[in-house]
Design a protein around this nucleic acid. Structure first.
Lengths: 132, 132
DNA sequence: CGGAATCCTGCCTGATACTG
DNA sequence: CAGTATCAGGCAGGATTCCG
């Protein structure tokens, strides 16, 4: 039986992994999470369950293929659940798991950062481009 | 003269942007930040200035092309500075700006999350793949 | 050492069409 | 409505070579 709390177990686990190493599984995980659709899907689900069509509408510019692909991967990784309601027409609902919620908090920070510091970035670009 | 604090200004600015809109500049910024090399470079610089060769060694698997390209973009966006010391051989040092540091804090959270929850993700995958 | 320039491959992505 | 299947192209990204 485990004598560690979940938090202690995570800490011990973290010490064994290093995302800087190319072969480390966390490196592959980090690569997968570093995806614009992943970020947007997670943030779109932050307030609760959403239907497929709701997500497609909210996340402007995503193709059906990429949305489905992203949702499947996130489901496989245990970050969200997919629920099919047998009605006519059929309804499919996606919802974050507790694991997904913990990641969503990090992702939301990224989105907020982008929206908060956009001005500073645009100024930096203008300044950089002005140089001879 | 501005009558708002920097924090207030950022908040007001944030309200004008929405990364869910495909045409919004923050969406493009979010796309750029959702890059594995960006994440790793920012985290690699968290403890202070680093030379080009140090970064190349630390971030296993990155090609010279991608490392240079990533560094250039981050420099243009005002997230880090590039300093050339005219010696033989030449030395180039990269260092986070205050803006870069604020983003680095978010990025570090992503890396820590990946390293902390790797086990849970692997279990979820095994469970998903076991289904008929 | 720290790049720039070039070439070239693959797979990511979008568009389209079809189904339960 | 919520997908799957297929096809085609474009550019991300690796490998290589050369330079100050």
């Amino acid at each position: 039986m485990p004598t560690m709390t979940a938090a202690q177990r995570r800490e011990a686990e973290r010490a064994e992994y290093d995302a800087f190493l190319a072969q480390c599984p966390t490196r592959q995980l980090l690569d997968r999470l570093s995806d614009k659709w992943v970020t947007l899907v997670l943030v779109a689900l932050e307030e609760g369950p959403r239907r497929y069509s709701e997500l497609a509408r909210r996340i402007a510019g995503v193709s059906q293929k990429m949305l489905t692909q992203t949702l499947r991967t996130l489901e496989r990784d245990g970050l969200l659940t997919r629920t099919v309601t047998a009605s006519v027409p059929v309804t499919v609902t996606y919802e974050l798991t507790p694991l997904g919620h913990s990641l969503q908090r990090v992702m939301a920070g990224l989105k907020v950062w982008a929206e908060s510091h956009m001005g500073a970035v645009l100024e930096a670009r203008a300044s950089y481009d002005a140089q001879p």
